[in-house]
Design a binder for these strands. Structure first.
Lengths: 190, 190
DNA sequence: CACCGTGATGACACCTGGTGTCATCGCCTA
DNA sequence: TAGGCGATGACACCAGGTGTCATCACGGTG
């Protein structure tokens, strides 16, 4: 197994994040990333479908976690409660040890319209997964879509606050807060 | 002004939409589009920043229309009412004469994850514009974001229904309906 | 009528993201 | 010991996208 150095994927991630931090996303070439990682351009695209994907790796798992948590919510749980539980379950993926890397990723993604675009796709995937799981448990359609959308919005709000420079609070707390704020704001629409 | 055929942009749009319909988005080359339009690859990229943008042209104006309508809403109007007025104002851009072309665009965008991504960016731009206009008129932040998000969701729901194969109803009607449904579903969250 | 500035296009070279394809090499198992 | 498998390298190739300069019509201006 070790004809080559191990942890190919991790090495690519580190090299990419390092270079992006030093010189910005678009002035860094995939070839440069693989040079730093001691690999080939071709190998990069075997591990990441995109140059962008290196910054959004592992988001597929989140969809599963959220959907599973919604499916596992108690029968009597309201849509809002089910979504709240899903966010709590997802929080396990956002321990303090991951925050620094998340901050670096966010810093790169920030100004780049290219990358925000990809982030939106990821968010849409999450909300679609939640909406599907809600429908599965019998929530009718305008409400399921709405609850999932609020969940997605709360998720990203919490994520942004979690990666904010001065923040020290945990993701679970921030997510619960963001969701509660949104549901409360519901009363101020009319 | 007519050293070349006029309506460059329109010709590019028609050529692109035609080819995409015939052979699918990604098997069509920009060079092929410009060949059919009697132009050069370089000229294409002078009119559209992207190959994708040819399918989303003119969405910038929507942001302005929505934001202006929100700004122009009566002082006493609730956030929901302001958003509703904005959707009504935007409906002027979606007359029956534009529906057929919109259907063709939707058909191309549908299966292509690339293009749905761009669509999401456009939607995010619209909601951001609405949220900004709402804040401008004094709506505080959780509510402004929420109302804008609902507006964006209602907008795209209405757009999808408007371009659905069998539909004959007008955009204004569909948008008002979608927004009302979402606001009503707000009560079913808890 | 000749001249000139401007705006849009053509021509062309170039870079880089992304893919197809085959060879290479170590590991594992029979 | 042989052979299958999985991951990587090597290499050619395509297409999206950009920088740059030349070209030509038009609309003034003298």
């Amino acid at each position: 197994m070790s004809r080559w150095e191990p942890n190919t994927r991790e090495r690519l991630l580190d090299a990419a994040l390092g270079l992006f931090g030093e010189r910005g996303y678009d002035s860094v070439t995939v070839a440069e990333i693989t040079d730093r990682a001691g690999l080939t351009k071709r190998t990069f695209f075997r591990h990441f479908t995109d140059k962008r994907e290196v910054l959004f790796a592992g988001q597929e798992m989140l969809s599963r976690i959220l959907a599973d948590a919604i499916a596992a919510a108690p029968e009597a749980a309201s849509p809002a409660a089910a979504v709240g539980g899903a966010l709590a379950a997802a929080a396990a993926e956002f321990g303090p040890e991951r925050r620094e890397r998340a901050r670096r990723v966010q810093a790169v993604v920030a100004g780049q319209s290219d990358l925000r675009e990809r982030g939106l796709l990821k968010r849409a995937t999450l909300t679609a997964a939640m909406a599907g799981a809600l429908r599965e448990r019998g929530v009718p359609d305008p409400a399921a879509t709405l609850a999932a959308e609020l969940g997605g919005l709360a998720f990203w709000t919490a994520f942004e606050r979690w990666t904010a420079p001065a923040n020290e609070r945990g993701f679970a707390e921030l997510a619960a807060e963001a969701l509660a704020e949104l549901i409360a704001a519901t009363a101020d629409l009319d």
